[in-house]
Design a binder for these strands. Sequence first.
DNA 1: ACAAAAGTGTTGAGAGTACACCCATGC
DNA 2: GCATGGGTGTACTCTCAACACTTTTGT
Lengths: 226, 226
Amino acid sequence: MYERNEYPRPMVTVDTIVFALREDDLQVLLVRRRHPPFEGTWAIPGGFVEMDETLETAAQRELEEETGLACVALEQLYTFGDPGRDPRGRSITVAYFAAVPAGSVVARAGDDAAEVGWWSINDLPPLAFDHDEILAYALTRLRYKLEYTAVGFSLLPEQFTLTQLQAAYEIVLGVRLDKRNFRRKILSAGILSPAGGYCAGEGRPARLYQYRDDAVAEVKARRLFP
Amino acid sequence: MYERNEYPRPMVTVDTIVFALREDDLQVLLVRRRHPPFEGTWAIPGGFVEMDETLETAAQRELEEETGLACVALEQLYTFGDPGRDPRGRSITVAYFAAVPAGSVVARAGDDAAEVGWWSINDLPPLAFDHDEILAYALTRLRYKLEYTAVGFSLLPEQFTLTQLQAAYEIVLGVRLDKRNFRRKILSAGILSPAGGYCAGEGRPARLYQYRDDAVAEVKARRLFP
DNA sequence: ACAAAAGTGTTGAGAGTACACCCATGC
DNA sequence: GCATGGGTGTACTCTCAACACTTTTGT
């Protein structure tokens, strides 16, 4: 056996799955790796945890370094640590996930990323490490959360129409919802307030709404949909 | 900056919170630490991850080594990794939790545990590291899971009466439930089958039930209680 | 005027909740 | 026979799901 402080230590990384609704589809932000292993392969943005930062801070930092995306609310997803998941040696990754509005600007590729891109969840490239497993898990969790909490709103711009909101739910959940029932339910939940403006489009202009930040973040005790 | 493989590495541990219903109360299994830091202080059982085992295997192994408890179903809870949570240096712990029947035998204290004991969740001793925070989180999660899934059954022996099951729900959730509504709901969920026997007690003997393992593990799509 | 999207109510079914008494056994 | 816990049914309310037409704008 080893003395307490002489245990061999695994590498510890953080990875962040970022979801957005783009092109009528649920997409995730991926980076093409600039370094081995899996050089040139697409992967979830992430990297090594520094010794003096929290895990969430590390996730934020790596996300910004590799994709330019900053200031997004992260939630811890799961920790993956099977031996053999990394060819360099024992490695444990704490996965985080986020949902962002479609308009979020993704600046540049960073030091460790040769390229940054959005990929449809239904049409993914081959992925590095066990990142396909992590993504599958993240998708399950996103759907689950959508039914119980208010994550749906973080996929939309600050102001949005009820039709946009319904479309977001339909795309993520992969089901069609009844317009009247949807509107009644979301309005009676009391988490939206009219923004006052209208959004002109091809037909009749639609009322704009915004999320009431005075509503508790977690929509309590009752699922929203279906 | 460091070369890839030369990053300083945090220590990685696993900790397992074990819940049981004892003495009409929700209790957790704790160990008194045999070694520094926090020597002599109560803590959640756990320890260092070896390089060739999965995180869950590590949690199982440490739990058995320190408390003698084996073969329990674990679920990953959360990963805690704030710098400063361990005086020895940067340390990250992957927390697991389990619910076991009251009768589960806890054998002996192990190498790293001077003593093993059950503590009521409402009357805990001072705890090592950030273990109070971890326990609070585990309790929240247990309550949450109880409403949506079938964890309630893992707190009971294989065969149990409906009154025992109701008491389990009441203790964990901290609320009183209506007997008739409880029985109707739990029976109509179709996850129990009569075991055939009866449990003699002070009054009329109570019918014994068991959990139907052909029922899907997660009671799907509808919360059980309230 | 017409195309295109926004907006709006009602009804029937099922689930949740509140509530009080009889039944089987041990002592 | 009585104390103790086991077991049962009904009425009301509320939420959910199904369903189609009118309104407002741009072209």
